[in-house]
């Protein structure tokens, strides 16, 4: 069902954990679908770049792998660039998620956008 890459990111995620001094926090998911995720972002104020990023995800293998992947994709990018990351980018970088799991990729981009949105305010 899952690609090797999905399983690798699920089994050995690099970006999980809490960030106490996060500049931005983005959330997505709900109990009904069973996925709850939080992204923590540290922003370099001068360059507007994402200096550090972490996630905490309660969810299936695809949701955890997608969380790890969006962190990998977003790290080092400016907020403007990070906002352009699509769920397809996440899925493709994971060697494609199964069609039934595509909503997990949507969820992680939602969480990232939720965080970025707060920065503008």
């Amino acid at each position: 069902m899952y690609s090797k890459k999905v399983l690798n990111h699920f089994n050995n995620p690099k970006f999980f954990g809490k960030m106490k001094d996060a500049d931005l926090i983005g959330k997505a998911g709900n109990p009904r679908c069973g996925d709850l995720l939080t992204l923590y972002l540290k922003i370099d104020k001068k360059t507007n770049k994402i200096k550090d990023i972490k996630f905490e995800t309660l969810g299936c293998a695809a949701a955890i792998a997608a969380s790890d992947m969006i962190c990998e994709l977003a790290k080092g990018k400016t907020l403007e660039e990070a906002r352009n990351i699509t769920f397809r980018d996440v899925s493709n970088s994971l060697g494609k998620l199964p069609p039934l799991k595509m909503h997990c990729a949507q969820l992680v981009t939602e969480a990232l956008n939720d965080a970025i949105k707060k920065y503008k305010k």
Partner: peptide
Amino acid sequence: CTSVSLSP
């Protein structure tokens, strides 16, 4: 956790 039926 599939988009066919997300409810548990």
